[in-house]
Computed example of a mutant assay.
Amino acid sequence: MTRAAGVRTALTARAALVALAALTALTTGCGASMTKDANEAHGAPGDDGDGTGDGGTGDGTGPVAEKPVEMAREELRALSDQLLELAAPADGATVTDPGPGVDVCADDPDRERLFTLYHAWGVHRLPRADLERAMDRLRQHLPAEGWLVTEDGVLNNANRSPRLLLEHPGLHTAADITLAGRGDDSQLRVTLQTACFSTPEGESPAGEY
Rank of each mutant, 00 (worst) to 15 (best):
T2H: 14
R3N: 03
R3M: 07
A5T: 11
A5S: 07
T9A: 13
A10L: 14
L11D: 12
A15S: 13
A16M: 03
L20M: 05
L20S: 09
T27E: 08
G29E: 07
C30S: 11
G31P: 00
S33R: 09
S33D: 14
A41T: 12
H42I: 09
P45A: 14
D48R: 12
T52W: 07
D54M: 06
D54Q: 11
D54L: 09
G55H: 12
R73M: 06
A78G: 01
L84C: 05
L86A: 11
L86T: 15
A88D: 12
G92N: 07
A93W: 00
T94K: 07
V95F: 06
V95T: 15
G99Y: 09
G101M: 13
C105L: 09
P109Y: 10
P109M: 11
E112G: 11
R113C: 04
T116W: 00
G122P: 00
R125G: 07
R125S: 14
L126M: 10
P127Q: 09
R128V: 15
A129I: 08
E132W: 01
R133G: 05
A134K: 00
Q140S: 12
P143E: 02
G146F: 10
V149C: 05
E151L: 08
E151M: 03
D152T: 04
N157V: 08
A158W: 12
N159L: 03
S161C: 03
L165D: 14
L166M: 15
H168T: 05
P169K: 06
P169L: 05
P169G: 05
L171W: 10
T173P: 00
D176Q: 12
T178I: 10
L179R: 01
D185F: 13
S186Y: 04
R189A: 10
T191F: 03
L192F: 04
S198E: 14
S198A: 15
S204H: 02
